[in-house]
């Protein structure tokens, strides 16, 4: 379903928590890409019917990948992972 392209060099591994579950990511990943590589595609719930939304533009334009990092709502596609980062699903933009 997803994963990483092999043979693109070694980057330091960091651990983040998403929805209470720990997963490994690479330094230099955005939150959105670390989650996608781990098959986490639903990043927020829409405001009206709670439908799942995920990465859409992946370049900071659309605000569909909003997640909550340390209590602050941020764009998953422009926020870099940090070791120990706690990420929760975002809600209404």
């Amino acid at each position: 379903m997803s994963g990483r392209i092999e043979g693109l060099g070694e980057r330091p591994v960091v651990t983040i928590t998403f929805g209470g579950r720990q997963l490994a990511a690479f330094e230099g990943d955005t939150v959105a890409m670390a989650l996608w590589a781990d098959a986490q595609v639903a990043l927020r719930q829409s405001s009206r019917n709670g439908a799942p939304r995920g990465v859409f533009c992946n370049m900071g334009i659309c605000y569909e990948c909003l997640v909550i990092v340390d209590g602050v709502t941020v764009r998953g596609c422009t926020t870099l992972v940090r070791d120990g980062m706690v990420v929760e699903r975002g809600g209404k933009p």
């Binding site: 994963g3 990483r4 392209i5 890409m33 639903a42 990043l43 799942p52 995920g54 990465v55 992946n58």
Partner: peptide
């Protein structure tokens, strides 16, 4: 078009060429 997994062509490019992440099967 709002379902997760539906995204812009540019988003796929960023995923593959910017991060080396595999978009799907």
């Amino acid at each position: 078009w709002t379902l997760p997994g539906v995204m812009t062509a540019g988003a796929l490019q960023v995923m593959v060429r910017g991060f080396g992440v595999v978009p799907g099967r």
